[in-house]
Design a protein around this nucleic acid. Sequence first.
DNA 1: CTACGGCCTGACAACGTTGTCACAGGGCAG
DNA 2: CTGCCCTGTGACAACGTTGTCAGGCCGTAG
Lengths: 332, 332
Amino acid sequence: MRDVAALAGVSLKTVSRVVNEEPGVSPDVRERVGAAVRRLDYRPNLAASNLRRTGARSGLIGALVQDVSNSFSASLLRALEDAARAHRTGVLAASLDEGVDREQELVHDLVTRRVDGVVIMPASDRQDYLVAELRTGTPAVFVDRPPRGVDVDSVVADNALGARLAAEHLLDRGHRRIAALFHLPQITTASDRRAGFTAAHTDRGLRPDERLVVEGITSTDEASEVVHRLLDLAEPPTAIFAGRNILASGAVRALQERGLHRSVALVGFDDFPLADLLDPPLTVIRQDVSKMGRLVAERLFARIGGDTSPPQHVVVEPTLVARGSGEIPPGA
Amino acid sequence: MRDVAALAGVSLKTVSRVVNEEPGVSPDVRERVGAAVRRLDYRPNLAASNLRRTGARSGLIGALVQDVSNSFSASLLRALEDAARAHRTGVLAASLDEGVDREQELVHDLVTRRVDGVVIMPASDRQDYLVAELRTGTPAVFVDRPPRGVDVDSVVADNALGARLAAEHLLDRGHRRIAALFHLPQITTASDRRAGFTAAHTDRGLRPDERLVVEGITSTDEASEVVHRLLDLAEPPTAIFAGRNILASGAVRALQERGLHRSVALVGFDDFPLADLLDPPLTVIRQDVSKMGRLVAERLFARIGGDTSPPQHVVVEPTLVARGSGEIPPGA
DNA sequence: CTACGGCCTGACAACGTTGTCACAGGGCAG
DNA sequence: CTGCCCTGTGACAACGTTGTCAGGCCGTAG
């Protein structure tokens, strides 16, 4: 900047004025400075600028998702990125892998970096630690899983409803032995889905077969093993509800290995690429990820813009997409 | 920091020393300052620190990929993230969507933000513009597609080899009318793959049927339409080579719609989740994405660390993964 | 001619931090 | 007792930028 000022024969402040397009600079000076800027390929130092400006923004938001390479997280990230771009803001993305400590570390790191806001798909059970972090004024919005121990905006799917839709779909087709695979029970999405699954039964005066309900499954391989085990039972399930996208993959694999993919019904939670190309095409509960991403960004940038209204908790309704695998009748 | 110094009864500089764990501070002062830091929840301002320190790092790298939500880009991003974490560095990710202008803008933006380095999966044909950007000292590493017009490190797959493997696999099984779908020809990955496809034929004294080779396909839907059209020909292909993951999806869809998925062979380029669960399981050319990500990070952090050796161009060999779809004989 | 106001421009301090250097105090050798 | 070195600490400037304010110039009205 000093060099630019020297080359243009003006003071530092005037260069600053031109660079920031402030009014009150005569056209010819503006032109001289502009030429000098181009000639020297001058780039303003955003960090220094932010340092001086009171309450300036870093133009950066943090996004902590479960796993950047998971299709759900990735799609969400993409929606966030698009919304952030409109605010000339970059997205700093990181994967938590359900690591509670990592969540805390990364939030701390992001706040220390002075990001303008944070989007969190939490791995932790409770987020009391956030209260201290948010005192710095950094807004946070939760997505996919609601906050506990701290009251901030959130955008989540109605997981109980989604699971209920899946279970009702299967029950309505006559299934009575429905297996269900869920993620870690301490994660609210998993417990809500389980609750919805159960409620669909009790509403009809039925009860889920507890031997067929398995919680705490964290990987595709594990899901596959569990399905194999369930199919070995004396009274194997006639249908399966996979409570998460990677669990559905495991279930599909196990059924194919058994040659049962056309005999046992399957409904997955979360849509994913190619689900419609499987044999049979996979019936799923779909969350509108792009919409969720947009809503999250909307809340976050409202907060960044100074919105101090009470925290909003947006619930998005999932829908059932019938493609074939969920419409297999019992005993097929 | 001023408050911390006041509370601990020391000077600013001493607080700085304690925070940065510099030697030469007596244990009791260190303790007092530490207590004050905790009590006030003091967080050092990284931007100010970087401003003062000469040649300090921002602890941030930029990653410009084709599309954050594409499984290839997402997996690469994840590998980058893991490697960056080891260097206490965050990843600023953005999608280019093959937008040439956006690529330039984003690179400019990242350099202006003073990121420590940039990973680029370029959308542009040539990157002469980078020369000016890199004069600032920001290192760049290309991935998936090699640089042109600027000489920097790169990590790419041997695309010609991959396509050759696919074509040979099909030719060896007796196919002679092999359709091939490619992305935009100005993108080197696409043209290299096409060249490899052709070479496999000429090596055997054959020639690809040009009516069956289609370039410039950018979406799944378009790929699907093209396959439908090719299947309508008087002499339809007995096998298809899809030169990119999203094109393979379109081909699978078209074949399924025709009920030909078990009669026409198909080999895709790029592995993706669930490819092994399709009917029939999809034979693909696999690039080891995690490995590529690691290699990219290795080069980038070496450069950030001061490595000034000549640019390295790492080529990763893809492999063919036979799963079924590529082993369908002609006329099945 | 004087006075006043508006338009441009620049000097200076400040943002939060750290590199440099100076200095106080204490221990130790001569 | 003197002089030196070492250890611990602080004052000050500087990083690159912008907010504040003062001041010079010009035109216009009185």
